[in-house]
């Protein structure tokens, strides 16, 4: 596993370049801020991205279960799902890493053995990107869900408190008892 070794050795540089590329998906002034401000509370987008990419880089080299992948990827995607990005823009930053690695190890990849490893690596990156898209879709679903929940709670709870909603009582009167649906094979009895 020559490539993994190379990647591990140059992890800091690789992650920095990956981070720089991701930051470029933001307008210039914002990109500067995301790189400059190191306080995680003053710059949650920058710090979440930085920490997430670092952890994901490790996962790509060392492997990791889906729970771990989710825990690193979710915070980044959760942010990008709200920002001014199309779905592809929100998730495609994962793919940037392929090019960064290719550019950095152009010579080494000329070796067929490393090339083979590089292809495996890119396939893992692709999987990560697909996972990112799953998370993106889930975040958007959550967004619509909380929007409708909020609307429901605002109106329904007010109706409920005002006594305009009548729950089904525990003890039902016989005339209101629901009709039992026939069980299949039971219709002739």
């Amino acid at each position: 596993m020559q490539l993994n070794k190379l990647l591990s050795q140059r992890k800091a540089d690789m992650v920095k370049r990956w981070f720089d590329e991701v930051v470029k998906t933001y307008p210039g002034e914002t990109a500067q801020f995301l790189k400059r401000q190191k306080n995680q509370f003053a710059n949650p987008v920058g710090s979440t991205t930085q920490n997430g990419l670092e952890a994901l880089f490790d996962v790509l080299i060392q492997g990791g279960d889906s729970e771990a992948v989710n825990s690193f990827l979710d915070p980044i995607i959760r942010i990008r799902a709200l920002q001014n990005f199309t779905p592809s823009q929100a998730t495609s930053f994962i793919l940037f890493l392929k090019n960064i690695v290719k550019e950095s190890f152009r010579k080494e990849i000329a070796d067929p053995q490393v090339m083979e490893e590089y292809l495996e690596f890119t396939s893992r990156v692709d999987d990560l990107c697909l996972t990112a898209f799953d998370i993106y879709a889930k975040c958007r679903e959550t967004l619509y869900q909380i929007q409708s929940n909020e609307m429901r709670n605002r109106t329904f709870r007010a109706f409920e408190r005002a006594g305009l909603v009548k729950d089904i009582p525990d003890e039902e009167s016989p005339c209101l008892r629901p009709v039992k649906p026939p069980v299949s094979g039971d219709c002739n009895t």
Binding site: P27, E29, T30, F33, Q37, N43, P44, V45, Q83, N84
Partner: peptide, 20 residues
């Protein structure tokens, strides 16, 4: 003030920098 606004920090849109 530029990087102190929660809308700038969250949206990443420079026009949400208070100065801008």
């Amino acid at each position: 003030c530029a990087d102190k606004c929660h809308f700038f920090i969250g949206t990443g849109d420079p026009k949400n920098m208070p100065v801008l």
